[in-house]
Design a protein around this nucleic acid. Structure first.
Lengths: 214, 214
DNA sequence: TAGATTGTTAATCGATTAACAATC
DNA sequence: TAGATTGTTAATCGATTAACAATC
């Protein structure tokens, strides 16, 4: 069955929401409870879960611990992932230092750059390797995910190297659409700022733009 | 007229794509040209632009320079935006140091934290202010956008402070859904990794999960 | 049993795409 | 004029939501 992309993304949100409920000592929740916290509709929650099985009890709701482990299994959060960061610039270093990744079992185990000056230097305790060592390190360290944090001009080329090296998926921070045969998730920070800028302009009550859009 | 959210986001993509065409010395492009580079359909491009006006010439296409300035005006890129980062942790410092923002005229002019230890220290040349100075600095520096890079537990509270201070929009890096009356753009890095993880699992040819989803 | 809440169907809503007359 | 490409309508596709029988 075809699973809608937004459903997959929401699965991650459910996972977190349920983790919070568990921390609060709650054992059972209804789709309504989850929906309220996430600002969505309860039928959305039930529909999303129904793609993967029947996890609830009618009249009762969902067992929090059980649902957490079901979702963890579906989205692969029950597994550790080894991650390589390509590009040891500002963004790359930031991600290597970001504790949120390791917390979710995405372990940064290698950092690559094409600048020989940077090779050998440590970022977040990890020595930077030259990009030419990619194939070797991917096998050695069992790397499955690559983060692309290189300038736009190098991104497509790097994506191809990454795919050839046998990496299984890419989180792409560069602002271009990569052409690959492996899955890519785009995180486009600048685009988010631009979208926000548009929404702010549209929001302002006194605004020439407003007129044009009506 | 109601503009679809995806259209607004694509406007940013068109802007970049056109900028590249301009750098390449191209004067006119067709919707087909743009669509090819972005992996979308030409009718999508024309439809998106049509929400805002008639910018092309039939038989000829679009004047690159003219379309760039039209889109810049629509999404507010022709304007400088002053940005405050709330949270001087790893993510906050990374964003302050990220040159991609200033390049797109999103100028980080202030950084706030509630940790007195950090106040006064400089990040990317900007001294960290205590969060209690928010109102004052927002007026003084004409801050319109806040970046929320604080832990989950503080995010909603900070969002309310930000709104009260008169900031017009939020880019939210915390993993919770903020309840505000001003526009919010969510950048959920961990969620992107999780979504990728799911896609990788689904992609693997030999996989127990695969069975369940069919 | 009565009340609550699921899982699922069908209706609705919104976004994408194809098709084509208009026109450069 | 002939060829190309727009702007826009209508058809299609996909995702969300309401509604409700099933059932704990």
């Amino acid at each position: 069955m075809k699973i809608p992309k937004p459903t997959v993304r929401r699965l991650g949100l459910y996972y977190r929401c349920l983790t919070r409920y568990k921390e609060e000592g709650v054992n059972f929740v209804s789709s309504q409870d989850i929906a309220d916290r996430l600002n969505i509709k309860p039928s959305q929650v039930r529909k999303d879960l129904s793609y993967f099985g029947e996890f609830g009890k009618r009249g009762l709701g969902y067992n929090v611990s059980k649902l957490i482990s079901e979702i963890a299994y579906i989205i692969g959060v029950n597994k550790e992932w080894n991650v390589a960061i390509i590009g040891a610039g500002n963004l790359g270093s930031a991600l290597a230092n970001y504790p949120g990744l390791a917390k979710h079992k995405f372990n940064v185990v290698a950092i690559f750059d094409n600048d020989r000056q940077k090779v050998g230097k440590k970022i977040a305790g990890i020595p930077v390797s030259h990009i030419s060592e990619l194939d070797e390190k991917v096998k050695e360290l069992n790397i499955e995910i690559a983060v692309i944090a290189v300038p736009e001009s190098a991104a497509q080329y790097v994506a191809e190297l990454v795919e050839k090296a046998g990496i299984k998926g890419i989180v792409n921070f560069s602002p271009i659409k990569l052409r690959t045969n492996i899955p890519v998730e785009d995180v486009d920070i600048t685009l988010s700022f631009e979208t926000l800028a548009y929404m702010i302009l549209k929001n302002s009550p006194v605004n020439i733009q407003q007129e044009e859009q009506v």
